[in-house]
Simulated scan of single mutants.
Amino acid sequence: MGEAPLAAAFTAILRRDLALALRAPGEIVNPVIFFVMIATLFPLAVSAAPETLRQIAPGVIWVAALLASLISMEPLFRSDFEDGSLEQLALAPQPLAWLVLAKLVAHWLITGLPLVVFSPLLALFMQYPWAALPQLMAGLALGTPVLGALGAIGLSLTVGVRRGGLLLALLVLPLYVPVLIFGASSADAAASGLPVSGQLQLLGAMAALALTLAPLAAAAGLRISLD
């Protein structure tokens, strides 16, 4: 199979998912609203003292990003499963894992990228240092694709289950823990003026591994769900 058909199929899936998301802006807006709500409610529940906010900001932002990513996973395969498009993708001459990767890239552009863009506003609201904002955004930019890729594996196994959101959460939340640990650690180290290259390299390695292996696992899960 030549590179041109693979690239054309990848681009077609990417454009299709982006066009569908633009027709339903809620898919873009809802995770961002959820992200903002979580981060803004924490000061009300804990303390509005600047020093307290500065200490909890890395963990709050990463937990909010994790939960926002989780609630945005449901439409990734669900609509395609319901209208029969998923079966057509499985029967396409291109590898299903390649098409899943295209859908993951589109999903990150729709949900992950807005979280990265809005994170500095929430960070400053929580008294996070200006100088550490680039490291915070870099960590989220590397970590959110991992969250999406791991979520796709769980979703591929629950796509045929009605109201499978709770089952999806039970499957993927344990897998999210390492990303949360290293992501929050990098943000905390950056806020303290410490080097963060080690944590960012680990997040980058996780992203490379997830985007390489997760499409294969998700494709296998989708074939199981379609059988």
Score class of each variant (00 low, 15 high):
120 P>T: 14
155 L>R: 14
107 H>F: 10
34 F>H: 06
134 P>F: 12
180 L>V: 08
83 D>Q: 12
68 A>E: 04
148 G>Y: 08
168 L>I: 06
144 T>Q: 07
117 V>A: 15
214 A>P: 01
140 L>V: 08
45 A>C: 03
37 M>D: 00
68 A>P: 00
111 T>P: 06
14 L>D: 02
143 G>N: 01
107 H>S: 12
47 S>V: 00
48 A>L: 12
116 V>E: 02
146 V>G: 10
131 A>W: 14
12 A>Y: 03
56 I>N: 00
104 L>H: 08
115 L>Y: 02
210 A>C: 06
146 V>C: 04
186 S>R: 05
15 R>A: 10
205 A>Q: 08
139 G>N: 04
4 A>P: 03
111 T>S: 13
185 S>N: 08
200 L>C: 06
193 G>P: 01
199 Q>K: 15
182 F>V: 12
205 A>I: 04
162 R>C: 09
100 V>S: 01
146 V>E: 05
126 M>A: 15
24 A>S: 11
143 G>I: 04
105 V>Y: 08
165 G>I: 14
217 A>S: 12
217 A>M: 15
105 V>Q: 02
196 V>P: 03
192 S>Q: 15
136 L>H: 02
56 I>K: 10
207 A>V: 12
93 P>T: 08
214 A>M: 06
123 A>F: 02
52 T>Y: 04
4 A>I: 15
148 G>R: 07
204 G>M: 10
177 V>W: 06
82 E>S: 14
45 A>E: 00
48 A>S: 06
37 M>S: 07
120 P>M: 13
119 S>T: 01
92 A>Q: 12
113 L>S: 04
92 A>D: 11
172 V>Y: 08
222 L>M: 12
199 Q>F: 13
212 T>D: 04
132 A>N: 09
217 A>P: 05
21 A>R: 06
145 P>L: 03
119 S>V: 04
221 G>E: 01
91 L>S: 10
182 F>D: 11
76 L>C: 04
184 A>V: 03
205 A>T: 08
141 A>T: 03
89 L>K: 13
177 V>A: 14
211 L>N: 11
191 A>V: 07
20 L>P: 03
209 L>F: 09
123 A>P: 02
179 V>P: 01
176 Y>C: 06
158 T>F: 11
16 R>I: 09
3 E>G: 13
173 L>T: 14
179 V>G: 03
185 S>D: 12
119 S>W: 00
103 K>H: 05
164 G>C: 09
177 V>T: 06
51 E>A: 14
76 L>M: 10
172 V>E: 07
68 A>Q: 01
12 A>L: 14
39 A>D: 00
182 F>A: 12
172 V>Q: 11
47 S>W: 02
28 I>S: 05
176 Y>W: 09
191 A>T: 05
207 A>L: 08
21 A>T: 04
38 I>T: 03
119 S>H: 02
192 S>Y: 09
84 G>N: 02
15 R>S: 11
46 V>N: 07
111 T>V: 15
172 V>D: 05
138 A>C: 04
177 V>E: 01
20 L>H: 08
207 A>T: 09
31 P>L: 08
62 W>Q: 03
148 G>V: 06
63 V>D: 01
158 T>G: 07
55 Q>C: 10
161 V>G: 06
210 A>S: 13
20 L>D: 09
108 W>Y: 14
54 R>D: 08
152 A>P: 05
159 V>A: 12
137 M>L: 07
176 Y>F: 13
218 A>Q: 04
31 P>K: 09
